[in-house]
Write a protein that binds this DNA or RNA. Sequence first.
DNA 1: CCAGACGTTGTT
DNA 2: GTCTGG
DNA 3: CCAGACGTTGTT
DNA 4: GTCTGG
Length: 247
Amino acid sequence: MCGRATLTCPPEVLAEHFGVALPASLVLPRFNITPSQPMLVVRATRSGSPADREAVMARWGLVPHWAEDASIGARCAQARRETIAQSAAFRDAFRARRCLVAVDGYYEWRRAHPQQKKTGAATPHWVHRGDGAPFALAGVWERWTTPEGERVETCAVITTEARGDVAQLHHRMPVVVPRERFSAWLAASPTGASELLSQIAEESAEGLACRAVSPRVNRPEHDDAACLEPATADAPLAPEPQLTFRF
DNA sequence: CCAGACGTTGTT
DNA sequence: GTCTGG
DNA sequence: CCAGACGTTGTT
DNA sequence: GTCTGG
């Protein structure tokens, strides 16, 4: 879950919402952001006050500082809330390098029936805020140095048990940080971060809406507004339990 | 002591 | 089936 | 997350 | 880098 994302809102909306200047390398709009691609992340500045933030682009798929090659990043696009504080790959970042991953939606694929594994019958859904605002996924970031000495910034999104109506889509969901908790999340002490994360996770479904969209988004090279087209109601391969436009 | 893992998803 | 690339 | 590849030799 | 398994 949460293995694709969107960032389609105007840059001035993003800058205002997160209280940052946007990096020059940010490309907008994005309708199909995949793991391995740059994500917009907001973090505390190196020596600034808790409210002092900066935005940078970080490759989606965290690579721990001790990794010998970057391949582990392919399996570290998400970090489980339940284990992040103990896991070797994520715990350092969780203590010292938490961030906000800026999105205005993410995709969730839902199979109507368990039997539909190889049949390509998973339907993509776009999860977004009912009010259309961008929002923040709880994340962590790392700086990895290649054998050649090049520095690469990477990030991961934290997932938790699905809450509320989003649970109808999937049993996991990203942790969503409400705007009033931005500073607390970025500034929490290493010990306080776990407690805060649990609190934030409980509220993660609030304000989210969802709609079934075109399978066009399945292909990572499709990065355009057609990905958000509502799924055509005809030719459903299987009856779906009532779950449609918005919660 | 050294060697080897270090992660998530989903699916059965 | 499993891994890599996007 | 899904899509697509998944292999070797030799020869041009 | 650090922990677990042998």
